[in-house]
Each structure stands twice: as C-alpha cells, then as structure tokens.
C-alpha cells in the first residue's frame, strides 16, 4: 500500500493536536495567571532503504547518497511558555501580581505544595489568605478581623492598619522559583506542581536573588496573544487540510491502480 496515506495521517493527527492546544490558549485568554502552551513537533524516524557510503559495485565504489523514506511527524511535547502576562490594575487590596520571576506557594488539601502566578486572593472564615478554591497561601498569613486597611509592600511584607492608628506586621509572603519553570506540571485551577524536570523549588523573599517583587492591587493576566493564536490557528488548520489532500491523493492513486483490471 502507499505509505503516504499513513505519513499524511500523522500530519493530520499532529495538526489536530496543534489546534487543541491553540483552542485551550484561546479559552483561557482571560484567565488570571494563565501560561500559554505550544505544541512542538519533530519529524518521525526514517526508513533506511540504502545508506550513504554503502558499496555500490564489486569494484568498491560507494553510494554517494543514501535513500531514506520519511514517515511523518510526531509531537515532541506541549511546552508551557512562562512569559510574563500584562498587568491589570484592580485596586483590590488582596490582589497581587509578581513582577518578575517566581510563584506563590499554595498548600493543597492533601498537604502538597502547589505553585501559581494567579494572585487573586481572598480571606477565609479565619481571616487567612486563600485562593479562589480556598487553598491557603504559604506561609499562612492571618488578617485580624478589625483590620481597617491591608498593605502589602514590594518585598511581600503584609501589614494591617488597626483601629487607633496602630500598624502591625502580619508576615512576609515568600516566592518559589525553579531552574526550569517550563518543566512544571499543570494541575488545573491555575496551579502548577513541581516535577523532576522543573527541579526543586528555590524559595526566597520577593525582590531578592532574582525573584520578582509584589505589586498590590494588580493582577497578572494570561500571556496569550490573541493575534498570534489566530495566525497559528489558521496555519494549523491549513496544514491539516493539506495533509488531508495528501491522503486523498494516495487514495486516488490506489483507486487508479485498482481500475487497471476491470
């Protein structure tokens, strides 16, 4: 049978995945702290028909070039791109954006630590800073119920202004960084989990050792660039179409061969 049928099918499968990733990026265009994904492709292995340098005749001449048949494409990975998204001023005192490298550390219900750049925090019934899903920010910071104003400085120090004009320091937010953020695992809910590829979390105070500083009353928006995604969507869809044409061509050639003998 014609190999082109399967070769083109790998191309269609790859472009379908490409469109899946683009659709997820577009769906999250307004998600705080979302990091866009990108599907990376590589060519598949080659079938060696003749290798270059093989003996071509008994006189010892060598084939100057070989013959290899390519078998299509494969997905090498879907990579998260950790470029900074643009910032949005919300004036909400519990919204925080990280300007630079680093992640907020979040305690999961099972005790594990997860990491996020989505800094839209709220208070729970005990006055602790929690994510929208109710998971506690680490190190835990409790805001007293009589706090009149909450102030978060660039280095992550959280202080509250209490009745009588006294201001008390409640704690300092610590950020985590990774040598390879692209190796983090997506957990959904805008959270990431450390993996073997990302390396261990390196924690520190905001603004120190290359970590970003905290911007209060700001949120980091998704880093999805709509125009770029649209262009990629067009390219992906057209590439899918071209590959389907190659399947069609292979099919028609088989049909022609079938029609030789009526």
């Amino acid at each position: 049978m014609i190999r082109a049928l399967w070769t083109a099918a790998t191309g269609m499968a790859a472009q379908a995945l490409n469109v899946d990733v683009i659709a997820n990026n577009l769906a999250n265009v307004n998600t705080t702290g979302f990091k866009r994904g990108r599907a990376n492709f590589q060519d598949l292995m080659y079938q060696q028909v003749k290798s270059a340098g093989a003996e071509a005749s008994s006189a010892g001449t060598q084939l100057p070039t070989g013959t290899q048949i390519g078998l299509g494409v494969r997905t090498s990975g879907v990579e998260s791109i950790f470029l900074e998204g643009s910032f949005k001023d919300t004036s909400n005192p519990l919204d925080m954006a990280i300007e630079g490298r680093g992640f907020f550390q979040i305690q999961m219900p099972n005790g594990d630590l997860a990491y996020t750049r989505a800094g839209a925090f709220s208070l729970d019934s005990q006055g602790q800073l929690v994510t929208a899903d109710g998971n506690v920010l680490q190190p835990a910071i409790t805001i007293p119920s009589d706090a009149m104003a909450i102030n978060i400085s660039n280095d992550g120090t959280v202080s509250a202004q209490q009745p009588g004009g006294t201001s008390s320091v409640l704690g300092q937010i610590q950020l985590a960084d990774f040598s390879n953020p692209a190796g983090l695992t997506h957990l959904g809910h805008s959270l990431f989990h450390a993996s073997n590829a990302s390396g261990e979390a390196i924690t520190g105070n905001p603004g120190v050792n290359g970590l970003g500083s905290i911007g209060q009353g700001m949120l980091e928006m998704s880093n999805v660039n709509i125009v770029e995604e649209m262009v990629n969507l067009i390219a992906g869809q057209r590439a899918y179409e071209m590959n389907s044409k190659a399947v069609q061509a292979g099919d028609e050639m088989l049909q022609t061969a079938n029609n030789i003998r009526r």
Binding site: D43, I69, V73
Partner: peptide, 20 residues
Amino acid sequence: AQRKLNDIAHNLANVNTAGF
C-alpha cells in the same frame, strides 16, 4: 510516483515542524 508522493506527504506532515 508512489515514492514521490510519500516524500511529498512527509514534507506536508512537517509543514509546521520547527527547523524541518
């Protein structure tokens, strides 16, 4: 011709592969 179609299909399958 079949062989050539295979090369074309391989090239088309990699029309979006970086550095191909």
